[in-house]
Write a protein that binds this DNA or RNA. Sequence first.
DNA 1: CCCTTGTATAAGTAAATGCTTATATGATTA
DNA 2: TAATCATATAAGCATTTACTTATACAAGGG
Lengths: 114, 114
Amino acid sequence: MEKTKIDVQELARVLKLLGDSTRLSIMQYVSKGECCVCELVELLDMSQPAISQHLRKLRDANLVVENRKRKWIFYRINEHHVAYELIHQLLEELPSVDDEFEELDRKNLRIICD
Amino acid sequence: MEKTKIDVQELARVLKLLGDSTRLSIMQYVSKGECCVCELVELLDMSQPAISQHLRKLRDANLVVENRKRKWIFYRINEHHVAYELIHQLLEELPSVDDEFEELDRKNLRIICD
DNA sequence: CCCTTGTATAAGTAAATGCTTATATGATTA
DNA sequence: TAATCATATAAGCATTTACTTATACAAGGG
């Protein structure tokens, strides 16, 4: 069974989306578990529309999927994307974001919703 | 021995460069062996200045290294780049470019220079 | 029902990008 | 030394990008 090959244009499209530090960070956060928009706004210290627009691009490319719970919209990485394994490896090269999540907890800005 | 981590900004910079199908193809070609500019112009069917400008970006980012031989300038992938292993894995996801190199041979446009 | 909260979208803008054409540079050859 | 070949650089331009501010929309809570 031959491993699936990815088209150059398609891979370039994905890499272009990941080639922005805000979006790359978003991908890292949402790969650790679901994040809602307001959490990402806090984690990345950026305006809500800016985050929303980045999320739209990632969603349009199917790199993330949304999950609506009560009044929040949670995003998580799409594990079924053709390039998921590759993206996962990329993200593993990055320093941990555990501290950022802990700080979010300390500030009581983590949204727990089950 | 902990594996070297790459800064988010730095990885994003690399991915941004790879997030262009022309440059991604160039990287693929020069990872298979040295290519001079005129070969890349032929392989990618683009203008010489366009290729040159893409090569400059890749060279500035240390993703490729140049090697001057006689009147040609050959480029090859920089195996010592921090993200080399990662890039190598990315390139392995792409379909082979052997046919393109063979066509170059058939057209007698391959530069052999030793 | 209103009012608030969370998120999305629209419009505008400055900066970056990727080409083009024209020209410069540098090495090779006649 | 002049002509040629391979490549680089400069300038110009249309398009894309990533923000901003303002507004819309959708879900909950009083």
